[in-house]
Design a protein around this nucleic acid. Structure first.
Lengths: 119, 119
DNA sequence: ACGGAAGTTCGAAATTACCGAACTATTGGA
DNA sequence: TCCAATAGTTCGGTAATTTCGAACTTCCGT
C-alpha cells in the first residue's frame, strides 16, 4: 500500500482540528499520543475494548486527515505521533490548552489506560 | 415559550465545546459574538446570506447546548453572548487560544462582516 | 508455506445535518 | 384592535456522515 495522505502544515484548518478533537474517542487517542515519547501503534493508542477496530481505523484516518496525527507504516503496524510542531506553528498554544483543559476537566489518563504499559 | 435550556457550568464538556466550534459557520458566529460587547441577536451574529435561517437556528441551538453561548429572549429577538466566564472557569485559556488561532490563521473578521455595524 | 497480528476496506444500517415550508411570538403602526 | 413585518423555531424529508461486522491485505515469525 502507498503512503498515507497527510495535509501539509498550511492546509491544516482550525475547524478541522477542533472537529477532530471534538469526539471523546479521538480526544482520548490524542491525549495518549501526547504522553508517549516515541509514538504508538493504533492498538496501544486506542485500547478501548468497546470500540470496534474498524471504527478506530476511521478515527485514526480522521485525525490524520485533519492534520492532528502523523501515521507511518512500520512493519505490520502503524506508528502514530501527534504533529506537535506543525500544530504549534500554525496554532500557537492551541494544542497545549486543549490538552490542559482535558486534564483539568477529566483528570489525568488513568493508569489502567496508560499507553506506556505502566501498571 | 419557556426559557432556553443551558447546561450548567460543570456540565459543559470539552468535546462538546470543541465539536461546537469545529464548524466554519459556528466558529464565525462565536468570533463575532466575542467581539461584541453587549451581545447580538441571531441575525447580526450570523449574517451569512447563503445559510438558511433554519440551519442557523440549529447552529445556535448547538452552540447553546454545548454551553458556548447564552441565549436570552428579548422581545422578538434572541440576544446571544459567549459564556466567557463559565468557559474560562472550566477550561482556562481555551477560548482565548481558539479565538487567537482563528485570527492568526484566517485573519481578523472583515469589516464588511463586522457585527457592530462599523463600515 | 502457514498462522497470527495489525489494520484497512466494503457495504449496509443507524445517526446526524441540512434546508424549504409552515408556524409562533412580538412589536409597531393604521 | 387588527394587520403586517420581523425574528426565530419547528417539522418533515432528504442528503451526508458515522458506525460496525465481515472479509480482506500485509507483514512477520516459525
Amino acid at each position: 500500500m502507498a503512503e498515507f495522505f497527510h495535509p501539509s502544515r498550511d492546509d491544516i484548518t482550525l475547524t478541522g482540528v477542533l472537529g477532530a478533537l471534538g469526539d471523546q474517542t479521538r480526544l482520548a487517542i490524542v491525549r495518549r499520543l501526547a504522553l508517549a515519547e516515541q509514538g504508538l501503534n493504533c492498538s496501544r493508542a486506542a485500547a478501548f475494548p468497546d470500540v470496534p477496530k474498524s471504527t478506530l481505523s476511521n478515527h485514526f484516518r480522521m485525525l490524520r486527515e485533519a492534520g492532528v496525527v502523523r501515521m507511518v507504516k512500520r512493519g505490520v503496524e502503524n506508528i502514530n505521533t501527534v504533529r506537535r510542531e506543525d500544530l504549534d506553528a500554525r496554532f500557537p498554544g492551541l494544542l497545549d490548552s486543549i490538552l490542559a483543559a482535558a486534564t483539568a476537566a477529566e483528570g489525568p489518563i488513568p493508569l489502567a489506560e496508560r499507553a506506556d504499559g505502566a501498571a
